[in-house]
Nucleic acid binder design. Structure first.
Length: 282
DNA sequence: ACCACAACCTGGCCGC
DNA sequence: TGCGGCCAGGTTGTGG
């Protein structure tokens, strides 16, 4: 599931190989993958544009194109990007192919067809509602604390709200809450300023670690060369139900929060704040 | 404004 | 072996 670290990994691997190249043509295997404009215009307006830079905002990968356009790609759950020789056969899940002028082609594969491509003049129409970038120095604990005020929903659910902070998904929300020693069901507005500071630090820590290891492959995530991430070996709670907590050995529990799975250590992340132990470290 | 939940999709897995 | 049903989760839309 591409979250911020996975998209950042893709950006870093792709950038040196596509920046400076020009789009020769585009082939849509599943036109619904294009969110905007309509598919015919998309193909027509992509042609001839030069890729000037490759950026990331939250979970969006953004190609800055000549002529003042941006191509934003959201991989959602199963999207992959692969840079292959132009003659390479198409994988059955290929939804779009962007041919470049160096005899290479960028293949967008997406088993579950949730991923989307946006070609726009004004990037803000795509990413304008996103909250702050968690790894930017300007994002401070006070900003996080402010955005939790008035939110009674579980902190886990609020962390998944991209308006609060951009880039967290199910894996890193669970990991960050463990590192911060916070139960996923805690109402967001009951966190103390000290707890929010811990959470802010934990979010940065797990995202930075995950980028260092090339992201997390649980099922389908692949880097552009087809290799998997390595962070799954370092994760503490996600997908580790009944396995020992890395800090105290208590079996990790899985529950349902806001309609999705949440993994936590019942001892290191007590729901009752009055008995909260010192936060988990590692 | 906030919150909960369905819908979008496919394929792997489980139980029968 | 085959098949129905459940589950995975990022985002949007809907209704309360």
């Amino acid at each position: 599931m591409p979250e911020l670290p996975e998209v950042e990994t893709i950006r870093r691997e792709l950038a040196p190989r596509v920046v400076g190249q020009t789009v020769v043509s585009v082939r849509l295997l599943w036109p619904q993958a294009v969110a905007t404009p309509d598919p015919e215009r998309f193909v027509q307006e992509m042609r001839g544009r030069r890729i000037e830079a490759l950026c990331r905002r939250g979970k969006f990968l953004i190609f800055q194109l000549s002529g003042g356009r941006s191509l934003a790609i959201h991989l959602r759950m199963t999207g992959q990007l692969h840079l292959l020789p132009a003659t390479e056969a198409l994988h059955p899940h290929t939804r779009a192919v962007i041919y470049l002028d160096n005899n290479r082609a960028l293949h967008f594969r997406d088993q579950r067809k949730f991923g989307r491509l946006y070609l726009v003049e004004d990037l803000e129409t795509v990413v304008g509602s996103l909250g702050p970038e968690p790894l930017e120095a300007s994002w401070q604990p006070e900003d996080l604390w402010q955005s939790l005020q008035g939110r009674r929903a579980p902190i886990k659910s609020v962390l998944l709200d991209q308006r609060v902070v951009a880039g967290l998904g199910n894996i890193y929300a669970d990991e960050a809450l463990f590192v911060a020693g916070l139960h996923p069901l805690r109402p967001a507005n009951t966190l103390t300023q000290e707890e929010v500071r811990r959470l802010h630090t934990a979010i940065r820590k797990v995202l930075t670690e995950a980028i260092t290891h090339g992201g997390t492959t649980i099922r389908t995530y692949r880097r552009p060369g087809g290799t998997t991430g390595r962070y799954q070996r370092h994760r503490r709670v996600y997908g580790r139900e009944n396995h020992p907590c890395p800090r105290c050995g208590t079996p990790i529990q899985r529950t349902r929060v806001g309609g999705r799975s949440a993994h936590f250590c019942p001892r290191c992340q007590p729901e009752n704040t009055s008995s909260a132990a010192s936060p988990a470290r590692r």
